[in-house]
Design a protein around this nucleic acid. Structure first.
Lengths: 222, 222
DNA sequence: AGATTTGTTTAGGCTGTCCTAAAATATCCG
DNA sequence: CGGATATTTTAGGACAGCCTAAACAAATCT
């Protein structure tokens, strides 16, 4: 009905929209790993199907229908990630890749079966919220760990799933959703953060720390 | 690497070969639900890749490599069928369709994970043997239920998974692998069989009964 | 403002898989 | 044997999704 390629484009547009407002063709092409011309072509097709609105040279916006489709794919993806981790014992750095392929082929029944088996979960292993069946999504905005100041404490809520290598690195160190953390030090000039979690402390570059979202506890120095 | 279409063709060739010796292009096209010309085209491509041998107007035969590929896909399929039934509670008439799509996208890791989770099984829910990792397959030839004579007893070993409707019908009646059966009566002129399983007896048409494979117990009237 | 750089779209092609229609080959039967 | 019938292959085309190269539009710099 809707091709795999179309689903992938819609998902990519959704994610870009989430971050940076308007979505340019080149950003979309970049995200999809295709040439800019290919993205233009697909955007025109999606616009023809009323899944996106396209104003040439201005960017792409998902329509209501397009957003719904994107969220359905994302729901599949995140449920699968969680299922692979929980039920099959996948390590959290490997779930993304497998889910990426499975998300396009599972039936609604499969979706429902794993949803129930997992106890109607709300978040995937990286802390990303799972869209509901009716394609609604509760987004909680948390601070980047890299934005916290020394002395701040909080709980990790999300870790970006974009880089498997990084996930492996953080997983080994216990820096996963629900872990409590405290910022001990923050070196100047975009230097690394020293973060304590449990008994041990870790030194994290700004780049990595910006991929970790934390729910900060109210600081007492107010 | 090898496209989904190619995998499906190889699988179809394997199954046709299993049944009827040489595989004609038209039989292949029929099985794949495509025009004969399309099958010819794909066969030529597969022959170019040394996955099949093709003698025009004579039929197609899988090469060693082609058979291996086919068995790998079938292994995926049957493991998935069993996993869907056992782990996710799918009814056995629905597993085929879902497995059909999943078989092409799961990784070797996924395969291994479900293989272990299922306790290294040897047969799928329909009683079909699951090819081993090294692409070897133990085939046990059992009698068609329709070939047994009144008085014969045995155990159901396989039920053809080709028709979901039929599987539902038989499942309700407990005519599943490992069920003990006894042929009470066999009407002449290709008439129905009366079969007892457990406490109840069922009347089955020849067509249906031919889709059930039974391991016959030695009869005592010898 | 004019020129350069950057971003976007159009034009034309390639590959994979399918199709129909027509030609070629094999089989069957009087 | 030879013509009718059935099967198989060839020829030519469609469509999806990708590509590169070239044309076009917008933004930026001096």
């Amino acid at each position: 009905m809707f091709s795999q390629a179309m689903q992938d484009y819609l998902k990519a547009i959704y994610k870009l929209q989430e971050q940076g407002g308007t979505v340019s063709t080149s950003a979309l092409a970049e995200a999809m790993g295709v040439a800019a011309a290919s993205a233009t072509g697909m955007v025109k097709k999606l616009a023809g199907l009323k899944l996106v609105r396209h104003h040439p040279y201005q960017g792409v916006v998902l329509s209501k229908a397009g957003e719904k489709m994107a969220l359905e794919v994302i729901r599949h993806h995140r449920l699968l990630e969680l299922y692979l981790a929980e039920a099959l014992g996948y390590s959290w750095d490997k779930v993304h890749e497998e889910a990426e392929r499975l998300e396009h082929v599972i039936s609604e029944e499969f979706e429902e079966k794993i949803f129930q088996a997992l106890g109607r979960p709300t978040h995937d292993p990286h802390g990303d919220p799972i869209p509901a069946k009716d394609a609604t999504l509760v987004v909680a905005e948390h601070d980047r760990l890299s934005d916290l100041e020394p002395g701040a404490t909080g709980v990790i809520r999300q870790v970006s799933d974009s880089d498997a290598e990084m996930l492996r690195y953080l997983g080994i160190r216990g820096l996963v959703p629900d872990a409590a953390v405290e910022v001990l030090d923050k070196a100047p000039f975009n230097g690394p953060l020293t973060v304590k979690s449990g008994e041990t402390s870790h030194v994290l570059g700004r780049e990595v720390a910006s991929h970790i979202r934390v729910e900060a506890r109210a600081t007492d120095d107010a």
